[in-house]
């Protein structure tokens, strides 16, 4: 007989705050207006999209002016990946004709939540026409038998 280890009080509290933090992040993404750049981190947030297919989850990210060899895709936890890439050249606000902000950008940076369980250790990616494609095989659960 398998012995199930009981969760400690601190594990339960940690899980609870983890869930609350995730909900807060989702809420922020949905309703809060924020710039698509960070002056502090010198990063720009790229446009991205997530598609779930029967076999895999595909995340695409628009990375114009990204240096191909510098693209990094890292799992942060079982539900989140972090994508970053260096730009071919520094982009300044002046390049867009903006003079009331100062700063320059050297990297793209974004995090993406994955909506279904995936095998994070089998993530593959490629770049086509400046669009990054991240492929993540889905984790298969138990099949439910037909009665």
């Amino acid at each position: 007989m398998a012995i199930r280890k009981r969760k400690s009080f601190f594990d339960i509290i940690n899980e609870y705050f983890g869930d609350v933090e995730e909900l807060a992040n989702q809420f922020e993404d949905m309703f809060m207006e924020k710039p698509s750049w960070s002056q502090k981190n010198c990063t720009m947030e790229p446009l991205k999209d997530v598609t779930v297919t029967p076999k895999e989850v595909i995340v695409t990210v628009d990375l114009p002016l990204a240096k191909e060899g510098t693209i990094e895709v890292k799992p942060l936890d079982s539900k989140t990946i972090e994508i970053s890439a260096e730009m071919k050249r520094k982009i300044r606000f002046d390049d867009f004709g903006i003079t009331h902000h100062k700063g320059e950008f050297q990297r793209f940076y974004c995090q993406t939540r994955i909506p279904v369980p995936v095998e994070m250790d089998k993530v593959k990616f490629n770049l086509k026409k400046g669009i990054l494609e991240v492929h993540m095989p889905r984790k298969r659960g138990e099949r439910i038998p037909i009665e």
């Binding site: 698509s36 446009l47 628009d62 114009p64 002016l65 390049d95 867009f96 400046g130």
Partner: peptide
């Protein structure tokens, strides 16, 4: 100038 346009147009696209 396609790549520059794509970079500049991110916010309008969003």
């Amino acid at each position: 100038k396609g790549e520059e346009i794509r970079l500049k147009a991110r916010d309008v696209m969003k």
